[in-house]
Nucleic acid binder design. Sequence first.
DNA 1: TTGTATGCGTTATCAC
DNA 2: GTGATAACGCATACAA
Lengths: 344, 344
Amino acid sequence: MSEKKPTINDVAREAGVSKRTVSRVINGSTNVGPKTLELIQQVIDRLDYSPDKQARGLASSRSYLLGLIYDNPDALYIDQVQRGVLNICSSKGYELVVHPCKYNSTDLVKNCLSFIRRSNIDGVIVLPPVSESKDLAAALREAGHCYVRMASVDLDDHTNIVVSDERAAMSEMARYIVSLGHKNIGFITGPLNYYSSIERLEGFRNTLVQLGIGLDEAKVVEGQNSYQSGQDGAQQLLQLADRPSAIFANNDEMAAGVLRVAHQLGIKVPEQLSIAGFDDNILASRIIPSLTTIQRPVGAMASLAAHKIIQSVEKNIVESVDKEFLVKPHLIIRESTSAPTAVD
Amino acid sequence: MSEKKPTINDVAREAGVSKRTVSRVINGSTNVGPKTLELIQQVIDRLDYSPDKQARGLASSRSYLLGLIYDNPDALYIDQVQRGVLNICSSKGYELVVHPCKYNSTDLVKNCLSFIRRSNIDGVIVLPPVSESKDLAAALREAGHCYVRMASVDLDDHTNIVVSDERAAMSEMARYIVSLGHKNIGFITGPLNYYSSIERLEGFRNTLVQLGIGLDEAKVVEGQNSYQSGQDGAQQLLQLADRPSAIFANNDEMAAGVLRVAHQLGIKVPEQLSIAGFDDNILASRIIPSLTTIQRPVGAMASLAAHKIIQSVEKNIVESVDKEFLVKPHLIIRESTSAPTAVD
DNA sequence: TTGTATGCGTTATCAC
DNA sequence: GTGATAACGCATACAA
């Protein structure tokens, strides 16, 4: 049968002290006599006592619950984030409560606020693209809630954000593609109301310009980060009279769409067309040819976010962590890119 | 500034009743006068009041927290489950706390029990392969915790389990492959200490036997559900003198590995080799050729599990839900399978 | 139908 | 250093 778990009162009684004193040792107060401390510690161990989070929360208005807010179709990304966060927070006594939501919903803010309030969530980590919402961030701040955003642009106090430098990564991508010899390049963007889409496009375009090549605006088409829209974009680009010899797609999902269309059109990849994506999704290494892409250190970013949110909740800022906020994704070269074949 | 949120006392005062009465309407008691009910309901709406879960839990020894326990590499599966569960549980006032763990760890049971106790989790949903652990299930039962297992075998009281009939699904797969004309078939299993692996193999083999074809044991190799082991299995099978004209792999990840090897060996798929997988992973529809596979109604299973766990927690069994426990996956035919080409 | 009183397991405010 | 005792917000015997 399930023994009912010991309470602070049990510990106090066994140790022959008041529960206030037990509370002190639990919370690491210094004002406890050394022998009292040891005695109580022993009893705690013997009884396998651990404080009840709910009662604790009721009294201190904390829940030891962290929330994860997102609306992201990429399951792999979510999973990596969850594990990265848990790596840190579970060892600090926090649990992770997940909260998928609809970024484009009109009651996004209300929905998230309600989520936090209902369960007294101590702090939330917000993932892109939800993290790009000014409204949500403002509401969170306004309501006095702790939060950390994961994003691709530096749009908040560094205490509250972890950003991946996707602009720099895309610059690297541009250099790489140019180094292969490509001059005629197509680009399928993400939704242009996402900062991340803009960042990636800008990083790529600016570098192309610097390299004296430039990006033909007729070969920039807007996608929706979906497989289908990747195919649509590819259809457009590959029907062009002077079709590109390389296409970058804003994520791997769309890049897979491009690959599919190339295959349908009998265009060989990478011989006749180089393709690159972004995310290093599970797809990237599995499809044939495997996909050149950009990998973000998602787990590390998530862990950093967890550190920050816990600091924020506990108002115990460690400068080194507080200052750190930028991580750099890197290029992964696989089979889908190569030098263009000379045509006529 | 953050208004402090209204309590039951605020509502009671505003409505001019005792908090006991407010409590009644919150909990849907019938013993409340109609006008009192409406009045209180109005005040609740006006104040945007919602009961504090922690306090509520402290008083009723419930947390309104559901746990999700798993150790599954398939992020897509996890994501689908999470959304399926949340679909149900969030509308019933529960939140979902995630708990990835190590199935093969020696302290799996202790770890999970500790997780539940720490946060007073009301009930847990356990995913395969962790759900196959007899020890964990026993410990959960022993400790008096509510749980629901998602599995591929009917190994618990129907109140506590949702099973996908993978045996039947694999029978369907076998019929399909045979209907294409294949007689020489290879099979890469999952880890054979998993029930699910056994079920799939048995379902397939039994049907082949029924159809008078049988499965050559020399062409059954054990994989680990990983991409690499799929490649290893394919290497073995495809080097055989009479190499199979069709290979089934226990999951899509391994099937992708098979496809990769076939590609390396210059074996055309599906012309010279048919390949099928299991899961309908995101991979399945993206790779070229797209993969014939089995799709489990994961979201529906998860929702059912959520219903069951909530019933279990609230001790409010609805017969129709209690009896329902079996769901049937179905075959999805794509490009990777076809009739074998006649050889010499 | 409605209200009173008590307890849930902590933390925190005081005194001693 | 230590200990009564009052919150915290709600549920629930028990009355009325």
